[in-house]
Design a protein around this nucleic acid. Structure first.
Lengths: 247, 247
DNA sequence: TATTCGCCTTGACTAGCATCAACCAGTCCA
DNA sequence: TGGACTGGTTGATGCTAGTCAAGGCGAATA
Protein backbone atom coordinates (compact mmCIF):
# COMPACT_ATOMS: atom_id res chain seq x y z
CA UNK A 1 0.00 0.00 0.00
CA UNK A 2 1.34 3.37 -0.79
CA UNK A 3 1.98 6.13 1.65
CA UNK A 4 -1.36 7.65 1.17
CA UNK A 5 -3.54 4.88 2.45
CA UNK A 6 -4.21 6.46 5.75
CA UNK A 7 -2.12 9.45 5.15
CA UNK A 8 -4.23 12.40 5.94
CA UNK A 9 -3.58 15.83 4.64
CA UNK A 10 -0.57 16.86 6.59
CA UNK A 11 -0.54 20.54 7.10
CA UNK A 12 2.97 21.55 6.43
CA UNK A 13 4.65 23.36 9.25
CA UNK A 14 6.60 26.43 8.48
CA UNK A 15 9.00 26.46 11.39
CA UNK A 16 10.13 23.99 13.95
CA UNK A 17 9.91 26.03 17.14
CA UNK A 18 6.49 27.34 16.57
CA UNK A 19 3.60 28.71 18.49
CA UNK A 20 0.33 26.93 18.85
CA UNK A 21 -1.03 28.66 15.84
CA UNK A 22 1.85 28.28 13.51
CA UNK A 23 1.62 24.54 13.74
CA UNK A 24 -1.55 24.52 11.72
CA UNK A 25 -0.31 26.62 8.84
CA UNK A 26 0.60 25.81 5.31
CA UNK A 27 3.86 27.11 3.96
CA UNK A 28 4.49 29.80 1.42
CA UNK A 29 2.86 32.72 3.14
CA UNK A 30 4.54 36.06 3.70
CA UNK A 31 4.66 37.77 7.04
CA UNK A 32 1.50 39.71 6.50
CA UNK A 33 -0.46 36.72 5.30
CA UNK A 34 0.80 34.74 8.24
CA UNK A 35 -0.56 37.25 10.69
CA UNK A 36 -3.90 37.28 8.90
CA UNK A 37 -4.09 33.54 9.20
CA UNK A 38 -2.90 33.67 12.74
CA UNK A 39 -5.82 35.89 13.60
CA UNK A 40 -8.26 33.35 12.27
CA UNK A 41 -6.99 30.21 13.92
CA UNK A 42 -8.50 29.82 17.30
CA UNK A 43 -6.67 28.83 20.39
CA UNK A 44 -6.18 25.13 20.55
CA UNK A 45 -8.51 22.90 22.50
CA UNK A 46 -7.54 20.01 24.73
CA UNK A 47 -9.37 16.72 24.88
CA UNK A 48 -9.03 13.77 27.19
CA UNK A 49 -8.90 10.24 25.99
CA UNK A 50 -12.32 9.07 24.92
CA UNK A 51 -13.70 12.57 24.53
CA UNK A 52 -15.64 13.53 21.40
CA UNK A 53 -14.28 16.42 19.35
CA UNK A 54 -17.51 16.50 17.38
CA UNK A 55 -20.35 14.13 16.64
CA UNK A 56 -22.15 13.17 13.49
CA UNK A 57 -25.16 15.40 13.09
CA UNK A 58 -23.76 18.37 14.98
CA UNK A 59 -23.63 21.69 13.16
CA UNK A 60 -20.44 22.20 11.24
CA UNK A 61 -18.44 25.35 11.86
CA UNK A 62 -14.79 24.45 11.94
CA UNK A 63 -12.17 22.08 10.73
CA UNK A 64 -9.75 20.75 13.29
CA UNK A 65 -6.06 20.00 12.95
CA UNK A 66 -4.48 17.58 15.36
CA UNK A 67 -1.71 19.31 17.28
CA UNK A 68 -0.78 16.47 19.58
CA UNK A 69 -2.41 13.15 20.28
CA UNK A 70 -4.38 10.70 18.25
CA UNK A 71 -7.95 10.48 16.97
CA UNK A 72 -10.30 8.18 15.19
CA UNK A 73 -13.19 9.23 12.98
CA UNK A 74 -16.11 6.91 12.46
CA UNK A 75 -19.57 6.67 11.01
CA UNK A 76 -22.26 4.59 12.67
CA UNK A 77 -25.04 2.73 10.93
CA UNK A 78 -28.57 2.83 12.28
CA UNK A 79 -28.31 -0.56 13.91
CA UNK A 80 -25.17 0.42 15.73
CA UNK A 81 -22.48 -1.06 13.51
CA UNK A 82 -19.51 1.24 13.49
CA UNK A 83 -17.11 1.89 10.68
CA UNK A 84 -13.87 3.62 11.56
CA UNK A 85 -13.07 5.81 8.56
CA UNK A 86 -9.61 6.88 9.63
CA UNK A 87 -7.04 7.50 12.32
CA UNK A 88 -5.53 10.98 12.60
CA UNK A 89 -2.24 12.01 14.11
CA UNK A 90 -0.47 15.32 14.50
CA UNK A 91 -0.80 17.66 11.56
CA UNK A 92 -3.80 15.87 10.10
CA UNK A 93 -7.19 17.43 9.51
CA UNK A 94 -10.66 16.37 10.59
CA UNK A 95 -14.09 17.59 9.64
CA UNK A 96 -13.85 18.00 5.87
CA UNK A 97 -16.94 15.87 5.40
CA UNK A 98 -18.98 18.46 7.29
CA UNK A 99 -18.71 21.14 4.63
CA UNK A 100 -21.15 19.52 2.23
CA UNK A 101 -24.23 19.68 4.42
CA UNK A 102 -23.07 22.09 7.12
CA UNK A 103 -23.36 19.18 9.50
CA UNK A 104 -20.64 16.85 10.68
CA UNK A 105 -20.87 13.50 8.93
CA UNK A 106 -18.85 11.45 11.38
CA UNK A 107 -17.75 11.28 14.99
CA UNK A 108 -14.24 12.33 15.96
CA UNK A 109 -12.95 10.79 19.17
CA UNK A 110 -9.64 11.27 20.94
CA UNK A 111 -7.82 7.97 21.45
CA UNK A 112 -5.44 9.61 23.90
CA UNK A 113 -5.20 12.98 25.60
CA UNK A 114 -4.90 15.35 22.68
CA UNK A 115 -4.85 18.90 21.51
CA UNK A 116 -6.34 20.37 18.35
CA UNK A 117 -6.36 23.72 16.55
CA UNK A 118 -9.75 24.95 15.49
CA UNK A 119 -10.02 26.45 12.01
CA UNK A 120 -13.33 28.29 11.58
CA UNK A 121 -14.31 27.36 8.08
CA UNK A 122 -16.08 30.57 7.06
CA UNK A 123 -13.04 32.58 7.88
CA UNK A 124 -10.69 30.19 6.18
CA UNK A 125 -12.87 30.38 3.12
CA UNK A 126 -12.81 34.14 2.93
CA UNK A 127 -9.13 34.24 3.72
CA UNK A 128 -8.62 31.80 0.86
CA UNK A 129 -10.08 34.37 -1.47
CA UNK A 130 -7.42 36.83 -0.42
CA UNK A 131 -4.53 34.39 -0.35
CA UNK A 132 -4.62 32.19 -3.46
CA UNK A 133 -1.98 29.81 -2.19
CA UNK A 134 -4.08 29.17 0.89
CA UNK A 135 -7.15 28.46 -1.21
CA UNK A 136 -5.17 26.11 -3.36
CA UNK A 137 -3.80 24.40 -0.29
CA UNK A 138 -7.30 23.68 0.92
CA UNK A 139 -8.37 22.24 -2.39
CA UNK A 140 -5.34 20.01 -2.30
CA UNK A 141 -6.08 18.87 1.25
CA UNK A 142 -9.60 17.89 0.31
CA UNK A 143 -8.42 16.13 -2.80
CA UNK A 144 -5.86 14.24 -0.78
CA UNK A 145 -8.60 12.98 1.48
CA UNK A 146 -10.47 11.71 -1.58
CA UNK A 147 -7.37 9.90 -2.79
CA UNK A 148 -6.89 8.35 0.62
CA UNK A 149 -10.49 7.18 0.64
CA UNK A 150 -10.06 5.58 -2.78
CA UNK A 151 -7.13 3.65 -1.44
CA UNK A 152 -9.17 2.45 1.49
CA UNK A 153 -11.81 1.28 -0.98
CA UNK A 154 -9.14 -0.65 -2.84
CA UNK A 155 -8.10 -2.21 0.44
CA UNK A 156 -11.61 -3.10 1.56
CA UNK A 157 -12.72 -4.27 -1.86
CA UNK A 158 -9.76 -6.32 -2.98
CA UNK A 159 -7.37 -7.29 -0.24
CA UNK A 160 -7.18 -10.30 2.06
CA UNK A 161 -6.87 -10.02 5.83
CA UNK A 162 -3.09 -10.38 5.86
CA UNK A 163 -2.65 -7.81 3.14
CA UNK A 164 -4.91 -5.36 4.89
CA UNK A 165 -3.09 -5.63 8.16
CA UNK A 166 0.33 -5.41 6.57
CA UNK A 167 -0.76 -2.32 4.65
CA UNK A 168 -2.10 -0.84 7.85
CA UNK A 169 1.10 -1.41 9.81
CA UNK A 170 3.27 -0.05 7.02
CA UNK A 171 1.10 2.98 6.68
CA UNK A 172 1.26 3.76 10.38
CA UNK A 173 4.98 3.20 10.28
CA UNK A 174 5.47 5.63 7.43
CA UNK A 175 3.38 8.34 9.00
CA UNK A 176 5.21 8.03 12.30
CA UNK A 177 8.56 8.09 10.53
CA UNK A 178 7.61 11.25 8.65
CA UNK A 179 7.00 12.87 12.03
CA UNK A 180 10.41 11.90 13.31
CA UNK A 181 9.35 8.87 15.34
CA UNK A 182 10.80 5.41 15.03
CA UNK A 183 9.39 3.68 11.98
CA UNK A 184 9.75 0.15 13.28
CA UNK A 185 8.90 0.41 16.94
CA UNK A 186 5.69 2.02 18.04
CA UNK A 187 2.66 1.89 20.28
CA UNK A 188 -0.77 1.34 18.82
CA UNK A 189 -3.18 3.93 20.05
CA UNK A 190 -6.26 1.99 19.04
CA UNK A 191 -7.75 -1.33 20.11
CA UNK A 192 -7.85 -4.47 17.98
CA UNK A 193 -11.52 -3.87 17.51
CA UNK A 194 -10.92 -0.38 16.13
CA UNK A 195 -8.28 -1.69 13.77
CA UNK A 196 -10.71 -4.35 12.66
CA UNK A 197 -13.47 -1.85 12.10
CA UNK A 198 -11.20 0.24 9.94
CA UNK A 199 -9.96 -2.75 7.95
CA UNK A 200 -13.30 -4.50 7.58
CA UNK A 201 -12.24 -7.40 9.82
CA UNK A 202 -13.31 -8.78 13.18
CA UNK A 203 -11.07 -8.23 16.16
CA UNK A 204 -10.26 -11.94 16.39
CA UNK A 205 -8.98 -11.88 12.84
CA UNK A 206 -6.79 -8.88 13.62
CA UNK A 207 -5.41 -10.64 16.68
CA UNK A 208 -4.79 -13.89 14.84
CA UNK A 209 -3.13 -12.16 11.93
CA UNK A 210 -0.82 -10.21 14.22
CA UNK A 211 0.10 -13.50 15.90
CA UNK A 212 0.77 -15.06 12.52
CA UNK A 213 3.09 -12.21 11.54
CA UNK A 214 4.86 -12.53 14.88
CA UNK A 215 5.24 -16.27 14.46
CA UNK A 216 6.90 -15.71 11.12
CA UNK A 217 9.33 -13.37 12.77
CA UNK A 218 8.11 -10.40 10.79
CA UNK A 219 6.96 -8.39 13.78
CA UNK A 220 7.01 -8.50 17.57
CA UNK A 221 3.79 -7.91 19.44
CA UNK A 222 3.55 -7.06 23.09
CA UNK A 223 0.04 -5.83 23.69
CA UNK A 224 -0.03 -2.46 21.93
CA UNK A 225 3.70 -2.31 21.49
CA UNK A 226 4.61 -3.30 17.93
CA UNK A 227 8.02 -3.80 16.39
CA UNK A 228 8.48 -4.32 12.70
CA UNK A 229 11.40 -6.75 12.59
CA UNK A 230 11.15 -7.48 8.88
CA UNK A 231 9.29 -4.61 7.30
CA UNK A 232 10.35 -5.84 3.88
CA UNK A 233 8.40 -9.03 4.36
CA UNK A 234 5.33 -6.94 5.01
CA UNK A 235 6.08 -4.87 1.95
CA UNK A 236 6.36 -7.97 -0.17
CA UNK A 237 2.96 -9.02 1.05
CA UNK A 238 1.30 -5.79 -0.06
CA UNK A 239 3.31 -5.16 -3.17
CA UNK A 240 1.04 -5.98 -6.01
CA UNK A 241 -2.17 -5.11 -4.29
CA UNK A 242 -1.32 -1.49 -3.63
CA UNK A 243 -2.36 1.14 -6.08
CA UNK A 244 -0.47 1.20 -9.34
CA UNK A 245 1.23 4.50 -10.03
CA UNK A 246 1.76 5.41 -13.60
CA UNK A 247 4.69 7.64 -14.32
CA UNK B 1 -28.25 3.23 2.42
CA UNK B 2 -28.91 6.87 2.13
CA UNK B 3 -29.05 8.86 -1.04
CA UNK B 4 -25.46 9.76 -0.92
CA UNK B 5 -23.90 6.37 -1.30
CA UNK B 6 -23.07 6.79 -4.92
CA UNK B 7 -24.53 10.16 -5.22
CA UNK B 8 -21.90 12.29 -6.76
CA UNK B 9 -21.84 16.01 -6.51
CA UNK B 10 -24.68 17.02 -8.74
CA UNK B 11 -24.04 20.37 -10.26
CA UNK B 12 -27.30 22.16 -9.97
CA UNK B 13 -28.65 23.37 -13.22
CA UNK B 14 -29.98 26.86 -13.41
CA UNK B 15 -32.41 26.52 -16.25
CA UNK B 16 -34.09 23.65 -17.98
CA UNK B 17 -33.62 24.59 -21.62
CA UNK B 18 -29.97 25.31 -21.40
CA UNK B 19 -26.93 25.53 -23.57
CA UNK B 20 -24.03 23.18 -23.34
CA UNK B 21 -22.28 25.39 -20.88
CA UNK B 22 -25.14 26.20 -18.63
CA UNK B 23 -25.57 22.56 -17.80
CA UNK B 24 -22.41 22.53 -15.76
CA UNK B 25 -23.17 25.57 -13.64
CA UNK B 26 -24.12 26.00 -10.05
CA UNK B 27 -27.02 28.21 -9.21
CA UNK B 28 -27.05 31.56 -7.55
CA UNK B 29 -24.95 33.53 -9.96
CA UNK B 30 -25.98 36.81 -11.48
CA UNK B 31 -25.89 37.52 -15.18
CA UNK B 32 -22.39 38.88 -15.15
CA UNK B 33 -20.98 36.02 -13.10
CA UNK B 34 -22.69 33.58 -15.39
CA UNK B 35 -20.97 34.99 -18.39
CA UNK B 36 -17.61 34.89 -16.62
CA UNK B 37 -18.14 31.26 -15.82
CA UNK B 38 -19.42 30.61 -19.28
CA UNK B 39 -16.16 31.89 -20.67
CA UNK B 40 -14.20 29.41 -18.62
CA UNK B 41 -16.10 26.23 -19.35
CA UNK B 42 -14.79 24.64 -22.46
CA UNK B 43 -16.90 23.19 -25.18
CA UNK B 44 -18.06 19.76 -24.29
CA UNK B 45 -16.26 16.69 -25.48
CA UNK B 46 -17.83 13.51 -26.83
CA UNK B 47 -16.64 10.03 -25.98
CA UNK B 48 -17.60 6.69 -27.38
CA UNK B 49 -18.40 3.72 -25.25
CA UNK B 50 -15.21 2.28 -23.78
CA UNK B 51 -13.17 5.41 -24.38
CA UNK B 52 -11.01 6.83 -21.58
CA UNK B 53 -11.73 10.38 -20.48
CA UNK B 54 -8.48 10.38 -18.52
CA UNK B 55 -6.11 7.84 -17.06
CA UNK B 56 -4.43 7.47 -13.71
CA UNK B 57 -1.05 9.13 -13.88
CA UNK B 58 -1.91 11.65 -16.57
CA UNK B 59 -1.36 15.29 -15.78
CA UNK B 60 -4.34 16.93 -14.14
CA UNK B 61 -5.71 20.09 -15.69
CA UNK B 62 -9.46 19.91 -15.59
CA UNK B 63 -12.45 18.53 -13.85
CA UNK B 64 -15.16 17.02 -16.00
CA UNK B 65 -18.91 17.11 -15.54
CA UNK B 66 -21.00 14.45 -17.22
CA UNK B 67 -23.44 16.06 -19.61
CA UNK B 68 -24.96 12.93 -21.05
CA UNK B 69 -24.03 9.30 -20.76
CA UNK B 70 -22.49 7.18 -18.05
CA UNK B 71 -19.00 6.67 -16.67
CA UNK B 72 -17.06 4.55 -14.26
CA UNK B 73 -13.96 5.61 -12.36
CA UNK B 74 -11.51 3.02 -11.13
CA UNK B 75 -8.11 2.55 -9.57
CA UNK B 76 -5.90 -0.38 -10.49
CA UNK B 77 -3.47 -2.16 -8.23
CA UNK B 78 -0.01 -3.09 -9.44
CA UNK B 79 -0.96 -6.71 -10.06
CA UNK B 80 -3.91 -5.70 -12.17
CA UNK B 81 -6.75 -5.95 -9.71
CA UNK B 82 -9.26 -3.24 -10.43
CA UNK B 83 -11.43 -1.39 -7.97
CA UNK B 84 -14.31 0.62 -9.40
CA UNK B 85 -14.59 3.68 -7.16
CA UNK B 86 -17.82 5.04 -8.59
CA UNK B 87 -20.32 5.35 -11.39
CA UNK B 88 -21.13 8.82 -12.68
CA UNK B 89 -24.21 10.00 -14.49
CA UNK B 90 -25.35 13.33 -15.85
CA UNK B 91 -24.48 16.31 -13.69
CA UNK B 92 -21.84 14.45 -11.70
CA UNK B 93 -18.19 15.45 -11.49
CA UNK B 94 -15.03 13.48 -12.13
CA UNK B 95 -11.40 14.26 -11.49
CA UNK B 96 -11.44 15.75 -7.99
CA UNK B 97 -8.78 13.29 -6.86
CA UNK B 98 -6.34 14.82 -9.35
CA UNK B 99 -6.03 18.12 -7.55
CA UNK B 100 -3.88 16.82 -4.73
CA UNK B 101 -0.88 15.77 -6.81
CA UNK B 102 -1.64 17.49 -10.09
CA UNK B 103 -1.99 14.03 -11.55
CA UNK B 104 -5.13 12.02 -12.10
CA UNK B 105 -5.48 9.31 -9.48
CA UNK B 106 -7.93 7.09 -11.31
CA UNK B 107 -9.15 6.10 -14.75
CA UNK B 108 -12.43 7.48 -16.05
CA UNK B 109 -14.08 5.38 -18.75
CA UNK B 110 -17.30 5.97 -20.66
CA UNK B 111 -19.74 3.08 -20.25
CA UNK B 112 -21.83 4.37 -23.13
CA UNK B 113 -21.48 7.11 -25.71
CA UNK B 114 -21.23 10.22 -23.59
CA UNK B 115 -20.57 13.90 -23.48
CA UNK B 116 -18.74 15.88 -20.81
CA UNK B 117 -18.01 19.53 -20.05
CA UNK B 118 -14.44 20.34 -19.27
CA UNK B 119 -13.78 22.68 -16.36
CA UNK B 120 -10.16 23.91 -16.38
CA UNK B 121 -9.28 23.84 -12.73
CA UNK B 122 -6.90 26.81 -12.63
CA UNK B 123 -9.52 29.04 -14.07
CA UNK B 124 -12.23 27.71 -11.82
CA UNK B 125 -9.99 28.33 -8.86
CA UNK B 126 -9.31 31.94 -9.74
CA UNK B 127 -12.92 32.51 -10.64
CA UNK B 128 -13.82 31.13 -7.23
CA UNK B 129 -11.83 33.93 -5.66
CA UNK B 130 -14.00 36.45 -7.45
CA UNK B 131 -17.29 34.69 -6.90
CA UNK B 132 -17.56 33.48 -3.30
CA UNK B 133 -20.63 31.38 -3.93
CA UNK B 134 -18.76 29.52 -6.63
CA UNK B 135 -15.83 28.87 -4.32
CA UNK B 136 -18.16 27.62 -1.66
CA UNK B 137 -19.91 25.43 -4.17
CA UNK B 138 -16.65 23.72 -5.02
CA UNK B 139 -15.78 23.10 -1.41
CA UNK B 140 -19.17 21.56 -0.96
CA UNK B 141 -18.76 19.36 -4.01
CA UNK B 142 -15.47 18.02 -2.74
CA UNK B 143 -16.88 17.46 0.70
CA UNK B 144 -19.80 15.61 -0.77
CA UNK B 145 -17.41 13.27 -2.50
CA UNK B 146 -15.73 12.59 0.83
CA UNK B 147 -19.08 11.80 2.43
CA UNK B 148 -19.94 9.47 -0.42
CA UNK B 149 -16.63 7.69 -0.01
CA UNK B 150 -17.26 7.24 3.70
CA UNK B 151 -20.54 5.59 2.89
CA UNK B 152 -18.85 3.25 0.46
CA UNK B 153 -16.40 2.34 3.23
CA UNK B 154 -19.33 1.55 5.48
CA UNK B 155 -20.75 -0.64 2.74
CA UNK B 156 -17.49 -2.45 2.02
CA UNK B 157 -16.54 -2.80 5.65
CA UNK B 158 -19.79 -3.87 7.23
CA UNK B 159 -22.39 -5.08 4.81
CA UNK B 160 -23.21 -8.53 3.44
CA UNK B 161 -23.56 -9.26 -0.25
CA UNK B 162 -27.35 -8.91 -0.28
CA UNK B 163 -27.22 -5.66 1.63
CA UNK B 164 -24.58 -4.26 -0.71
CA UNK B 165 -26.52 -5.09 -3.81
CA UNK B 166 -29.80 -3.80 -2.42
CA UNK B 167 -28.09 -0.56 -1.43
CA UNK B 168 -26.59 -0.31 -4.88
CA UNK B 169 -29.90 -0.80 -6.67
CA UNK B 170 -31.71 1.67 -4.43
CA UNK B 171 -28.98 4.21 -4.91
CA UNK B 172 -29.11 3.95 -8.68
CA UNK B 173 -32.87 4.13 -8.52
CA UNK B 174 -32.79 7.31 -6.47
CA UNK B 175 -30.29 9.02 -8.69
CA UNK B 176 -32.24 8.15 -11.81
CA UNK B 177 -35.46 9.34 -10.21
CA UNK B 178 -33.89 12.66 -9.29
CA UNK B 179 -33.10 13.13 -12.98
CA UNK B 180 -36.66 12.49 -14.00
CA UNK B 181 -36.25 8.88 -15.06
CA UNK B 182 -38.32 5.98 -13.81
CA UNK B 183 -37.15 4.95 -10.37
CA UNK B 184 -38.22 1.32 -10.63
CA UNK B 185 -37.46 0.37 -14.18
CA UNK B 186 -34.04 0.98 -15.63
CA UNK B 187 -31.14 -0.33 -17.67
CA UNK B 188 -27.84 -1.08 -16.03
CA UNK B 189 -25.01 0.56 -17.89
CA UNK B 190 -22.33 -1.57 -16.31
CA UNK B 191 -21.52 -5.28 -16.37
CA UNK B 192 -21.93 -7.67 -13.47
CA UNK B 193 -18.20 -7.65 -13.10
CA UNK B 194 -18.09 -3.87 -12.74
CA UNK B 195 -20.87 -3.94 -10.18
CA UNK B 196 -18.95 -6.59 -8.31
CA UNK B 197 -15.76 -4.60 -8.40
CA UNK B 198 -17.52 -1.60 -6.97
CA UNK B 199 -19.25 -3.63 -4.25
CA UNK B 200 -16.27 -5.79 -3.33
CA UNK B 201 -17.92 -8.94 -4.71
CA UNK B 202 -17.23 -11.37 -7.54
CA UNK B 203 -19.42 -11.28 -10.60
CA UNK B 204 -20.91 -14.69 -9.80
CA UNK B 205 -22.05 -13.41 -6.43
CA UNK B 206 -23.66 -10.40 -8.05
CA UNK B 207 -25.45 -12.64 -10.50
CA UNK B 208 -26.60 -15.08 -7.85
CA UNK B 209 -27.81 -12.31 -5.57
CA UNK B 210 -29.80 -10.70 -8.36
CA UNK B 211 -31.35 -14.08 -9.08
CA UNK B 212 -32.20 -14.48 -5.41
CA UNK B 213 -33.93 -11.09 -5.32
CA UNK B 214 -35.82 -11.99 -8.48
CA UNK B 215 -36.88 -15.33 -7.04
CA UNK B 216 -38.33 -13.55 -4.02
CA UNK B 217 -40.34 -11.35 -6.32
CA UNK B 218 -38.52 -8.22 -5.23
CA UNK B 219 -37.10 -7.39 -8.63
CA UNK B 220 -37.28 -8.54 -12.24
CA UNK B 221 -34.06 -9.12 -14.11
CA UNK B 222 -33.79 -9.40 -17.85
CA UNK B 223 -30.12 -9.07 -18.66
CA UNK B 224 -29.38 -5.40 -17.95
CA UNK B 225 -32.99 -4.44 -17.66
CA UNK B 226 -33.97 -4.21 -14.00
CA UNK B 227 -37.36 -3.60 -12.46
CA UNK B 228 -37.79 -2.97 -8.78
CA UNK B 229 -41.10 -4.67 -8.05
CA UNK B 230 -40.88 -4.38 -4.29
CA UNK B 231 -38.46 -1.57 -3.55
CA UNK B 232 -39.64 -1.57 0.05
CA UNK B 233 -38.33 -5.07 0.54
CA UNK B 234 -34.94 -3.87 -0.59
CA UNK B 235 -35.20 -0.90 1.73
CA UNK B 236 -35.99 -3.18 4.63
CA UNK B 237 -32.89 -5.14 3.83
CA UNK B 238 -30.62 -2.10 4.02
CA UNK B 239 -32.38 -0.24 6.78
CA UNK B 240 -30.24 -0.67 9.79
CA UNK B 241 -26.98 -0.93 7.97
CA UNK B 242 -27.16 2.45 6.28
CA UNK B 243 -25.59 5.43 7.93
CA UNK B 244 -27.34 6.78 10.97
CA UNK B 245 -28.37 10.42 10.65
CA UNK B 246 -28.64 12.39 13.79
CA UNK B 247 -31.02 15.32 13.68
C1' DT C 1 -27.29 -19.89 -41.32
C1' DA C 2 -23.50 -21.11 -38.79
C1' DT C 3 -19.65 -19.23 -35.89
C1' DT C 4 -17.67 -16.87 -32.57
C1' DC C 5 -17.36 -13.91 -28.74
C1' DG C 6 -18.72 -11.44 -24.64
C1' DC C 7 -21.58 -11.60 -20.89
C1' DC C 8 -24.36 -13.99 -17.82
C1' DT C 9 -26.24 -17.93 -15.07
C1' DT C 10 -25.97 -21.91 -12.35
C1' DG C 11 -23.93 -25.82 -9.91
C1' DA C 12 -20.39 -28.10 -7.04
C1' DC C 13 -16.83 -27.47 -4.12
C1' DT C 14 -13.59 -24.80 -1.12
C1' DA C 15 -11.23 -21.25 1.49
C1' DG C 16 -11.23 -17.62 4.41
C1' DC C 17 -13.10 -15.18 7.72
C1' DA C 18 -16.89 -14.86 11.25
C1' DT C 19 -18.87 -16.68 15.18
C1' DC C 20 -19.00 -18.75 19.55
C1' DA C 21 -16.65 -19.85 23.52
C1' DA C 22 -13.06 -20.46 26.93
C1' DC C 23 -9.44 -18.48 29.05
C1' DC C 24 -5.71 -15.09 30.27
C1' DA C 25 -3.44 -10.66 31.70
C1' DG C 26 -3.67 -6.17 33.31
C1' DT C 27 -6.14 -2.59 35.69
C1' DC C 28 -9.38 -0.44 38.43
C1' DC C 29 -11.80 -0.21 42.55
C1' DA C 30 -13.97 -1.84 46.82
C1' DT D 1 -6.33 -8.55 48.82
C1' DG D 2 -9.85 -9.98 46.05
C1' DG D 3 -13.27 -9.37 42.52
C1' DA D 4 -14.90 -7.54 38.49
C1' DC D 5 -14.06 -5.59 34.17
C1' DT D 6 -11.80 -4.54 29.82
C1' DG D 7 -9.18 -6.00 26.12
C1' DG D 8 -6.64 -9.67 24.02
C1' DT D 9 -5.53 -14.54 22.55
C1' DT D 10 -6.60 -18.95 20.91
C1' DG D 11 -9.36 -22.97 19.53
C1' DA D 12 -13.43 -25.30 17.34
C1' DT D 13 -16.96 -24.86 14.18
C1' DG D 14 -19.97 -22.82 10.56
C1' DC D 15 -21.30 -19.90 6.91
C1' DT D 16 -20.57 -16.63 3.30
C1' DA D 17 -18.71 -15.65 -0.67
C1' DG D 18 -14.86 -17.12 -3.75
C1' DT D 19 -13.25 -20.47 -7.16
C1' DC D 20 -13.68 -23.58 -10.84
C1' DA D 21 -16.33 -25.30 -14.41
C1' DA D 22 -20.11 -26.08 -17.74
C1' DG D 23 -23.44 -24.24 -20.44
C1' DG D 24 -26.95 -20.58 -22.30
C1' DC D 25 -28.21 -16.40 -24.65
C1' DG D 26 -27.78 -12.54 -27.69
C1' DA D 27 -25.13 -9.72 -30.74
C1' DA D 28 -21.88 -9.20 -34.20
C1' DT D 29 -19.66 -11.30 -38.17
C1' DA D 30 -18.84 -14.07 -42.10
Amino acid sequence: MNDQLLHHHTLKVSCSSCSLRELCLPVGLNRDEMSQLDAVIRQSRRLKRGEYLFRSGEGFRSLYAVRTGFFKTCVASQDGREQVTGFQMSGELMGLDGISANVHGCDAIALEDSEVCELPFNRMESLGREIPSLQHHFFRLMSREIVRDQNVMLLLGNMKAEERLAAFLLNLSGRLASRGFAANDFILRMSREEIGSFLGLKLETVSRTLSKFAQQGWISVDHKHIKLDQPDSLKTLVSGCSQAHSH
